[in-house]
Structure formats: C-alpha cells, structure tokens
Simulated assay, not measured.
Amino acid sequence: MNPRLFWSLLLGTLLLLGVPLAILFMRTHERVTETVTLPPQGEARYNPLYVLGQALRADGIEVHARPRLDLQQMALGPQDTVVLLQDSSELPTPAARALLAWVDGGGHLLLRTPPPAEDDAGSTQGPLLDALGVDSLYQRSDCQPFHVQDDPGHVEFCKGRRFTLGFAAEARTERRWGSGHDLVFARLRHGQGRVSVLADMDFMRSEVESQAARMAAAKGQASDGLHDRSHRDLTRYLLDPNYGKGAMWLVYASRPPSLWVRLFYQGWPLWVPLLMALLAWLWARSQRFGSLLPSPVIERRSLLEHVRASGELLLRFGQGVRLYQAVHALFVHRLRLRAPLAAALEGAPREQAIAELLQWPRSRVASALTPPPPHDSSALRERIRLLLQMRSLL
C-alpha cells in the first residue's frame, strides 16, 4: 500500500472518531473549580502562634519564635514584648524573677493563667503570678461579652481561668476587664514596663477549638483565631504598649517530641530493615513445623499385629486352609490334655466321642473337623469359630 494513502486513511479515521467524541465530552462535562484546604505544613503544624508571627512580620515588626522560655538564649531588649503562651506555673522561681527584672526595665509581658484543670484545689498558680500579686484563680464555664459593632453577640475567654488581684496589685492596675468579682484581663505597671495577665490566649492561636471554627473549616474557610476581625482588634489592643518599638518574642509552648517518637516516625528507614532482618534470623533459627522428608517408619513389636497381618496375607493369596490347620492343631492339643482317649481315636469314633464329651450334635462336630474349601472364606470363618468354641468348652 502506498504510505501516503495509508497515512491519509489513518488521519481521516481519527478525525471521524475524534470529532464526535470531543463534542460528546464537551456536552457532558463542565469545568469546576474546587478549593481544598490542605493541612498545615512546616512550622505551622507545631507553632500555634505562627499566624500571629506572620501578621506581625507583614507589619514590619521583628518577630522571634521560641518553643520554651529560655532567657539565656533570648536577647531581650528594653522595649521588646514577650507573648508567653507557655504555662506560667511551670516557670521556676529564678526564671520568674529574671523575667520580671527585664519587665522592670521597660519590657511588656503578656501571659495567661494556668489552663483549667479537673480539680481546681490541686492546681497552683506558680511563682510568677504570685510575684505579680494575683490573689486567686477561678474556673468558670461562662464567657465574657465582647461588644463588637458588627457582631453584637460576640464573647471571649470561654475556656480560661479567671483571677482576682490583691490590694498591692490593684494599686498598680492600669486597665482591667471582667465582672464585678473576677477578671479576664488586667494590665499592671511593673517598674518602667507592663505586664498583661489574661484568662486565656485562644484568640491569638492558629486554631480555635470552637464549633464556629469547625464549621468554617468544613466550608473551606480559614479557621485560625486571627481570621476573626474581633480577634485581630483584641490582639492589637493587647500588644499596644510596646507595639512597633521593639521585637516580638512569641513563646508558643511546644514540647519537642520524645526520642522514641522521632525514631518511630523519622527513623523507619533504619529500624524497618533491621526488624525484617531480625525476623528472618528468628525464622531461620526456629524449629520447623513439619519436615521436607517423610517421617521414618516406626518398628511395630506387637505380636497381635504380626499375627493379624500374617492371616490377612494368607487369605489374600488363597491359603486359608493353613489358618484352619493351625486352629485345628490348637484344638487337638487341648483335646489330648483334657480327653486323651477321645484324641487317640480316628474318624467317626473320634467325632462321636467329642460330641458326647461336649454334648453337641455329631454333625456339628463333624462339620468343625472337616477342612473348608480353599476359596470359601465364609466356611473358613465358621469352622474356625466352631473349633475355638469347642476348645474353650474342653
């Protein structure tokens, strides 16, 4: 076939098939854009203040993120701000004193009360809150109303632990927010700096465990705390004293994973081959359940089995008369011991003597003493049964 003609036919066939398929595809399908919210990656997975740090960097502020408070590694300036998401009750007394000494030079510290516990009586507020003059902590289930113009029913501090201040702390209070008995926020003067005590910091976190946040995440919207305008306004208000004057230090209270967790999730390329090698070695060294060769035949020493096997062999090859002769010999031997006179007779007189001795009919005795036909197995069994019965009656 001419190559040019072949390619022309092939191109025409493709056009005839492709054009209808393309029209069918365009009429039965439509372009749809779907936005899928991916899980956080990198630092956003473990830093709950990551969004806050990114927002501050976008505003031109220097931001430093730390998993735990370490004053020796943190070069705090006199106009810096420390957002302490870490539980303040975990700080030892020397660290609390050093932190307050830095605040005394002009710094701004934001901290929260210890998170709610199952037993309020068994919890302590720690040396830092004691030094600030926090009197007592209260665990309540109600929220603090936060009046926003476009959200009249907005509330905050629903999961935090409220607090009260002592007389000395009341005198150093610049701003306060709460009910008549307890507070959710208080800004205290401490030397040249400020300390802001909050009931909780959920509005600053990158995730909020609220029903509204879960519904927003289900709709594909952002679910972080700073997504809400009221949360951004409240955060900006709390960061006000030193905002834009120094660096921001965000202590996000992240505990590093344990060694065993890191080995399990990150070291699997090493321990999986080692585990497979160990299992293979155990399988090679273990006892096998079965054998590739048949088990050796065990020698049988039972006399009854040998006698039974010999009888079956004789019957199989038509030698049943020999079995009858053996049983007959046993009967004659017993007859010689019990009735020697009858054993000395031959023929019909012996049959008559045995019948009178056993009180059997003479015909039955004669049938038992007559050898069976060579291939009549039923007659053989019957005569052997009679001989054994006659032997047992002697």
Rank of each mutant, 00 (worst) to 15 (best):
R4H: 01
L9C: 09
L9G: 08
L10P: 07
G12K: 04
L15C: 09
V19E: 04
A22G: 12
F25C: 11
T28G: 09
E30G: 10
V32L: 07
V32M: 05
T37A: 15
P48D: 01
L49C: 02
R57N: 06
D59I: 05
G60T: 09
V63A: 12
A65Y: 05
P67N: 11
P67I: 10
L69K: 08
D70Q: 10
D70P: 15
Q73W: 03
Q73M: 11
A75H: 00
P78R: 10
Q79A: 15
T81I: 14
V83W: 02
L99V: 08
A101Q: 15
A101W: 12
A101P: 09
W102A: 10
G107R: 09
R112G: 15
R112K: 15
T113G: 03
P114W: 09
P114L: 15
P115S: 11
E118F: 14
S123H: 02
L129T: 01
D130C: 00
L132T: 00
G133F: 02
D135G: 04
S136K: 14
C143T: 02
Q144A: 02
V148E: 09
Q149L: 06
Q149H: 02
E156Q: 03
F157G: 00
C158K: 01
C158R: 02
R162D: 11
L165C: 12
A168L: 13
A169K: 09
A171Y: 12
T173V: 13
R175L: 09
G180D: 13
D182G: 13
R187I: 03
R187C: 07
H190E: 14
S196A: 15
E209G: 15
Q211H: 03
A212H: 11
A213Y: 04
A217Y: 07
A218L: 13
K219D: 13
G220H: 05
D224H: 14
D224I: 00
R229V: 08
L238S: 00
Y243C: 06
G246M: 04
S254V: 00
R255W: 06
L259E: 01
F264I: 13
Y265A: 13
G267L: 06
P269Y: 02
L275D: 07
A277N: 01
L278G: 10
L279C: 11
A280W: 09
R285P: 04
R288K: 14
S291N: 04
L292E: 10
S295V: 01
I298M: 07
R300I: 10
L304T: 14
E305M: 03
H306V: 15
V307Q: 14
V307D: 13
S310E: 12
S310G: 11
G320W: 12
Q325R: 07
V332T: 08
R336A: 12
L337E: 13
R338N: 12
A343P: 09
A343T: 05
A344L: 15
L345N: 01
A353E: 15
I354D: 01
P361Q: 05
R362M: 03
R362C: 02
V365M: 02
V365F: 01
A368Y: 15
L369G: 11
L369V: 13
P371D: 10
P372C: 06
P373G: 10
P373H: 02
P374R: 14
R381H: 04
I384K: 03
R385E: 05
L387W: 10
L387S: 08
L387K: 04
M390S: 08
L394R: 05
